[in-house]
Amino acid sequence: MLVLEYKIKAKKHQYTAIEEAIKTTQFVRNKCLRYWMDAPREAKLNGYALNKYSTELRNEFKFVADLNSMAVQSSAERAWLAISRFYDNCKNIVSGKKGYPRFQHDNRSVEYKTSGWKLNPIKRRITMTDKKGIGELKLLGKWDIQAYPVKEIKRVRLVRRADGYYCQFCIGVDASDPHPETNNEIGLDVGLESFYTDSNGYQEPNPKFFRKAEKSVKQAQRRIYKKVKKSLGRKKARGIFARKHLRISRQRTEHASRIARHVVKSNDLIAYENLQVRNLLKNHCLAKSISDVSWGLFRQWIEYFAGKFGKLAIAVAPHYTSQKCSSCGVIVKKSLSTRTHVCSCGCSLHRDENAAINILNLAKQARDGQSQSNANGLVASTLSGESLIGQVTR
Rank of each mutant, 00 (worst) to 15 (best):
V3W: 03
Y6V: 13
H13L: 09
Q14A: 12
A39D: 05
A43Y: 13
A43T: 14
A43E: 15
G47L: 00
A49Q: 09
Y53W: 10
S54A: 15
E56G: 06
L57V: 01
L67S: 06
A71E: 02
A76C: 02
A76K: 02
E77N: 15
W80H: 04
R85P: 03
R85C: 13
F103Q: 06
N107C: 13
R108K: 11
S109Y: 12
L119I: 08
K123G: 07
M128E: 00
G135R: 08
E136R: 13
L139E: 06
K142C: 04
A147P: 00
P149Q: 02
E152D: 15
R155I: 06
V159L: 13
G164P: 05
Y165C: 13
V173C: 09
D174R: 01
D189I: 07
L192A: 05
Y196Q: 00
N200R: 11
E204D: 03
F209Q: 00
R211I: 06
K212I: 14
A213I: 00
K215P: 00
A220E: 13
S231F: 04
K244G: 08
H245E: 06
I248Q: 02
T253L: 13
H255Q: 07
N267E: 04
E273R: 09
H284M: 07
S291M: 12
V293A: 13
W295S: 08
F298K: 02
I302M: 14
L312W: 08
A317T: 12
P318L: 01
P318G: 00
S327E: 14
K333V: 03
S337R: 07
S344E: 10
L360A: 04
N361D: 12
Q365F: 04
Q372A: 11
N374W: 07
N374P: 05
A375T: 13
S381P: 04
L383H: 11
S384W: 06
G390Y: 10
